[in-house]
């Protein structure tokens, strides 16, 4: 038996036939839609490497069944830069060397975008650290990650509003 779902991934509508109801959203993205930017570090909600935005909220995609996201709007790391321009969070990650091996980085960036949209940190480094603590980094780039989130948050606020999701290509 197959199951049909359709979802929007990075603004593109995808109609998917699933041969198995157990396919997670993460494995759907990685193995069936060839969107491998999202990473699998544990497959059980313990590391945050698979963080994506679903309807604007950050979730661990390894814990989500694809089937239960019929109709959802998904944003992955591949859909963050627009028109050849990096998102301010991406730029800040490079500037603050908030990555080493880079494996946790897509998850960190999606989580950071989600966190900034949640608007709960008030520019307080302690709250950023807390809010980013669902994303493990074994290389331990945490100092840079915290700096990058604070920096990007500030830039986004200056640019008007907390709509961290997009940056005009202009």
């Amino acid at each position: 038996m197959t199951f049909s779902i359709s979802l929007t991934v990075n603004g593109v509508r995808r109609d998917v036939e699933l041969d198995n109801p157990r396919v997670t959203l993460l494995d759907l993205l990685r193995e069936r839609l060839q969107l491998t930017g999202t990473k699998k570090g544990c497959d059980r909600g313990q590391c945050g490497a698979c963080t994506v935005l679903v309807d604007g909220r950050r979730i661990n995609s390894c814990l989500a069944l694809a089937l239960s996201h019929d109709g959802a709007d998904i944003r992955t790391i591949e859909g963050v830069a627009e028109g050849g321009h990096l998102h301010p969070v991406q730029e800040a990650f490079i500037a603050h060397d908030a990555l080493q091996c880079g494996f946790c980085t897509p998850g960190q960036i999606m989580s950071a975008i989600g966190l900034i949209q949640e608007g709960q940190t008030d520019g307080d480094p302690e709250r950023v650290r807390e809010g980013m603590s669902g994303n493990l980094c074994r290389c331990s780039a945490y100092a840079g990650i915290t700096e990058a989130v604070l920096d990007a948050q500030k830039k986004l606020a200056e640019a008007g509003g907390t709509d961290a999701g997009r940056r005009d290509a202009a």
Binding site: L35, T36, G37, Q90, I94, L99, G102, T105
Partner: peptide, 10 residues
């Protein structure tokens, strides 16, 4: 990092 853009874009 010269590989920074690749790593932050997936």
């Amino acid at each position: 990092r010269r590989d920074g853009v690749l790593k932050v874009t997936g």
